[in-house]
Amino acid sequence: MDDEIPKIAIAIDDLTVAYNYKPVLWDIDLQIPEGVLMAIVGPNGAGKSTLLKSILDIIKPLAGSVTVYGKPYKKQRDLVAYVPQKGSVDWDFPTTALDVVMMGTYGSLGWIKRPGQKEKKLALEALEKVGMLPFQNRQISQLSGGQQQRIFLARALVQNAAIYFMDEPFQGVDATTEKAIIQILKELRKAGKTVIVVHHDLQTVPEYFDWVTFLNVKKIATGPVAQIFNDDNLTKTYGINYKTSITEGKL
């Protein structure tokens, strides 16, 4: 990949978002190359989730534009899949695991058309990939946090997108699920997909990801983990001195 210039999957230009005049994201310029597994890190309130949501047009930015493979995001929706934060929905909703995963097929179905056997097969395959096939008929509130996260992941996998955005997929999951999820993310990268993950655990950044963006309202830095995941950038992002075990010995 070093020899050729990598294609840019996502290009963000001058993105600014504010809630009630308070800037949440300030003038973000970001280019994400195709095929990276990228972490977005930053302290609480740094605008990480907001960045994903404004890229995906869930939140209207004050200014700025987002292009996906050179075209506006709105024209490229079918290339992009989103895994929201687990806590953003009510898991007591009356539906089953399979039903939630089936929702991943609704985009390609379009308005009104109902899912059929083909869609069910795709959903079952995705459930299999995340190891949740035995739980397909479970009511979703009867799943553990880790299992719910896997269901969300499976729903995105069904979309068979080129780019995946995930909002804290490791939050509140057990070690087994974390391993299973990172395995799937690495497989996605191997298949040439671009995966962008809002991530909290700095310890695992070098192990899991090959690309990283430091964010704290402004973009602090972005690039390969091996080059830019260092004390300097951590300190700039988190505001305190990060001479800690996080980077020592691992880089």
Partner: peptide, 22 residues
Amino acid sequence: LLFWKEFKMVLFDADYTKTLGF
């Protein structure tokens, strides 16, 4: 009946529904 699929998805996860282009 007509919009069953859309209603269900919006009720469960409106943000996600938006990313699918609805």
